[in-house]
Amino acid sequence: MSKLVDDAVCDYFDLLLNDAPTVDNAATEPSRLRQSDTAALSQEFAPVEVEARINQQALAQLLAPVSALALKIEPKPEFEPELEFSHQDTIANPAQATMLQPQKPALPEQTALNPLAESNDLKQVKHAAASSPAASITTDLIEQLDDEFQVLFFKVAGLTLAVPLVSLGGIVNIERINHLMGRPRWYLGVQQHREAQLNIVDTCAWVMPEKYDQTLAQNVAYKYIVVLQDSNWGLTCESLVNTVKIHKSQVNWRSQAGKRPWLAGVVKEQMCGILNVEALVAMLDSGLGSQG
């Protein structure tokens, strides 16, 4: 990784850390633990630290739509702890969470099924997620995910991003992107995909526009498109790293949507952002950049 890219990535995460969320103390409906979650918990007795596993089979399935072009998948995640994330930025004020605790219905009965399974971190996340209406999108994502869920890690300009597999629509090779005039800089154009138009996002330009100068643009070599859910949006990436099964507690979920609702949180071990695809698609549909 070049020094230029290093600097860009570090600056980018510094920026993320300084994204002070707007404080909104209005309590919303607390997050509910799904029955499937508790079932999974009772089966797995998931420890707090779930060992990251490379699921090559799942990755192979993901890549099925990709044509014969050989994919160079890095054999093992080589995440560099380049950055330090502030827990204050991602986890709500514990005092605030404690205040709201009595308002949570039904949870004691469900958690009693497996008191060991829900870590303190996860409890904290749920309290935090329930503490603000602005976090409802993230709350929805947390509720949608099983306690253990798979994510795909992909890289762009040295920056690693994670997308939950439940939010992944597929991966396609970059072939021919048609440029459309008058579009924002981050909009690369359209590529045909399954007889439809896929809108291609220049991920680097969208995520860190302030760092995306001519030099950085020349260093980025996009190869794949990560299709978002069932939308017609795709994020460009340089390489696919792997798919890993992680536990919810391994993510520092953002308690506030803030200025970047597309960022659901940070995967602690890999120190990379995890995408809130639903929010991201909504922003892209509205033509918004990453700063909103």
């Binding site: 008058g182 359209v190 033509g287």
Partner: peptide
Amino acid sequence: IDNAPNVGTEESTKFIQGVSNRENELLI
């Protein structure tokens, strides 16, 4: 003929009235 993606505010965005796939090529 499909609608062009509704992204962007520049004047030139209005020039495109649609797009169409034809023989694996996009016609604007």
